[in-house]
Computed example of a mutant assay.
Amino acid sequence: MTRSELIARMAAKNPALYHRDIERLVGTILDEISGALERGDRVELRGFGAFSVRHRKARIGRNPRTGTSVQVAEKKVPFFKMGKGMRERLNR
């Protein structure tokens, strides 16, 4: 599901709200989650899951096209862990 599809579904379920307000709401929520991850915070949505940042160490990788070794820098990556409620919904 894309961001625009999410907004369209929310608008269909909430006809009393303006489309632009739902768009602003979704944007604000995603911006707040992104901002928290940038600060190194963990975002937990009970029943859905938790977003956190994981650190990957620098390593030596391999270019799949040429086979040569390439130095891959250390980086931070987002990580999502599914919550218990979501896991139960998916595995009914």
Rank of each mutant, 00 (worst) to 15 (best):
V53Y: 06
P64C: 08
R46N: 11
V70H: 04
K81P: 02
T66S: 13
V72T: 07
R42A: 07
M82F: 05
R56M: 04
R42Y: 00
G61R: 00
M82S: 14
V53S: 03
V70W: 05
F79C: 11
G83V: 10
A58D: 04
K76F: 12
R62F: 02
E44F: 03
T68G: 02
R59F: 02
P78D: 06
V70A: 05
P64W: 01
G61Y: 02
D41I: 06
T66L: 00
K75R: 15
T68R: 00
R54G: 13
G67C: 08
R62E: 01
K84Y: 08
R87K: 15
I60W: 05
R59C: 10
G47S: 10
D41C: 08
P64R: 03
E74F: 01
G49P: 13
A50I: 03
G49H: 12
A50E: 02
I60D: 07
R46H: 09
A50R: 12
V72M: 13
K57A: 14
M82N: 01
K84H: 13
G83F: 11
L45V: 15
K76P: 03
R62C: 03
A58T: 08
M86A: 15
R65N: 06
G49A: 09
M86V: 08
E74G: 12
G67Q: 06
G85V: 10
S69K: 14
V43Y: 10
K81R: 15
M86Q: 09
S69F: 08
V70P: 01
Q71K: 04
R56F: 05
F79Q: 13
D41T: 11
T68Y: 00
V43S: 08
I60G: 01
V72D: 05
Q71L: 00
L45H: 05
R65Q: 14
M82V: 15
F51N: 09
M82K: 09
R46K: 14
R65H: 10
R59M: 01
G49I: 09
N63G: 09
A73S: 14
Q71Y: 01
V77W: 01
F48M: 06
R65A: 11
H55W: 03
F51R: 08
K75S: 13
L45G: 06
S69M: 12
G61T: 03
T68F: 00
E44L: 05
G85E: 14
K81I: 03
K57F: 02
R87E: 14
T66F: 00
A73N: 12
H55A: 06
S69A: 15
R65K: 15
K84L: 12
F80T: 10
R54F: 01
F51P: 11
G47W: 12
K84G: 10
S69P: 06
R87P: 02
P64S: 12
R54A: 14
R46Q: 11
G47A: 11
S69E: 14
G47M: 09
V70D: 09
T68K: 00
S69I: 02
A73W: 01
A73T: 13
